[in-house]
Design a protein around this nucleic acid. Structure first.
Lengths: 280, 280
DNA sequence: ACAAATTACGTGATGCGTAATCATA
DNA sequence: TATGATTACGCATCACGTAATTTGT
């Protein structure tokens, strides 16, 4: 029987050129390697080495055997890796989302519906999300539009609408709707963790400067204590909203309102069906 | 460390469905298999089976692992097989020939020039010879013509000419050359082991019956004691010829004289160069 | 003299089979 | 009751490392 460990030894010899060096690298004794190589030759039944009293090198047989050993070891490592990955995948639901708000909703639902599962979630742009879904890095992704593909199972979920939150003394405080370009040039507070929304303000308001806050507490503190306008969404409002003496002004640009779609591969649907049913 | 033997056990379980059956087939005890499977799970770090108290079956991880095991075992078996084949090839010169006479010459030379090598030889038709050369089943082949290919190294060797050997009383005994068709219809003795020559008489003399002798002794005995004409070649004559009261009549058909060519792949030439040099 | 491979030798780990146990069909 | 999986246990094997040997640089 060919021993797997002997193949490791063979491969190490191929890499390091001498048994001594290989033994050192493998943290085993030199005689052990000598014996491993002898066992291999014995097992296969042909010489693998050219021997002189204190030198050892491959003959043609050995070269071929080392090639095979390399491939077999790769396969074995790949087996361990892939089986572990499969196991992990079986115990995990991975959710990728274009924005944090619908992701939170999905994670909340998933946690309740699959209490024994690990729920992993992250925000990414739409393209990597779709690629990730196809490569099964994600089982579920949430997009701000309906993708067209017959391999995908798609379910409309919530909508999110963006507003300006301006101090009560602001020039638009009394308005019942403005376009973003009307606000262009005015500096604004901006929270960083807003997913795909990050591009919209920069596109529509190229002359504004955005004071990006990565910390939620800092952002809310500044919202109370400064007169800089900022964005808020209706979903975020539902969560918690300390009015902070600010007025909401609807944004009239159509891009300010999106409908989220929860998407999975049709072949994966069975695994996450409960989650899709829960949002109907 | 993943043990190769454990993969064999896994594969056996996949094939036979229960540990008991697999243990029986592998001629080992049931507990050994239990332990092997436990070791594998331990090694990979994930469960591979669905266990009920007296039943064991794969889960998804196990199915995947078994797939890999199958491939790894195939590769390992293939390694042993191919390394052994390479070793054998390194100790063997395989000669394929279209006819026995030039083959004997080549085997004689090879035996002298490579006394430590095994010389294997066989007669085949030209097409399988060329295929066999390309697949390295043969290192050297001998053809009755010059093949055209730049991957081949070619050396003219001997020529062989065919004669009729007729009893001295035969109607052509005095002739100094006839065409085969002139002999058509007359029954003849024919020795079976004549390589590619076998088709020529049947083609040119479709009305003759050939009394094929597979045994050399029987053939020679009949040549002495019967009045049936037969074929002989100049090379065969050189070996031994008991005239046996027979007259040689040259055959005028051009196909009755061939020039043999010894052929090898250019990339194999170094291994057999001495043999090619010896015939110049 | 040093480095590399191999052989000798004693010891500890380990992996086997037998036997016992448990559970299910 | 029979079959299949697992655990317990004792024993023999075997594979390791240390030490000694040989040989070539």
């Amino acid at each position: 029987m060919i021993e797997h460990e002997h193949l490791r030894h063979l491969e190490a010899f191929a890499r390091y050129g001498t048994l001594s060096k290989a033994a050192e690298e493998l943290h085993i004794s030199q005689p052990t390697l000598t014996r491993s190589m002898q066992k291999l030759e014995d097992e296969i039944g042909v010489p693998l080495f050219l021997r002189t009293k204190n030198h050892l090198e491959f003959n043609a047989n050995g070269e071929l055997a080392a090639d095979y050993a390399r491939r077999i070891l790769e396969q074995t490592d790949s087996m361990v890796e892939r089986v572990r990955a499969l196991d992990r995948a079986g115990r995990t639901i991975s959710i990728g989302s274009c924005a944090p708000m619908p992701m939170l909703t999905a994670v909340r639902n998933a946690t309740h519906l699959y209490p024994e599962m690990t729920i992993s979630s992250e925000c990414r742009d739409c393209e990597p999300l779709i690629e990730g879904l196809r490569s099964e890095l994600y089982q579920i992704i949430i997009l701000p539009y309906r993708p067209e593909d017959k391999d995908l199972y798609i379910q409309k979920t919530e909508t999110e609408t963006l507003f300006f939150a301006v101090p009560s003394g602001h020039r638009f405080a009394g308005s019942n709707g403005i376009y973003m370009k009307e606000m262009d040039g005015e500096n604004m507070l901006l929270y960083s963790d807003i997913g795909f929304w990050h591009s919209l303000p920069r596109e529509k308001m190229p002359h504004s400067r955005f004071l990006v806050q990565t910390d939620r507490f800092a952002f809310e503190e500044l919202m109370s204590s400064s007169i800089l306008p900022c964005f808020v969404s209706d979903i975020a409002l539902a969560d918690n909203w300390n009015s902070a003496d600010r007025v909401l002004v609807p944004i009239l640009d159509p891009e300010a309102k999106v409908t989220y779609h929860m998407v999975c591969l049709k072949k994966t649907l069975s695994k996450v069906r409960k989650l899709f049913l829960s949002v109907i």
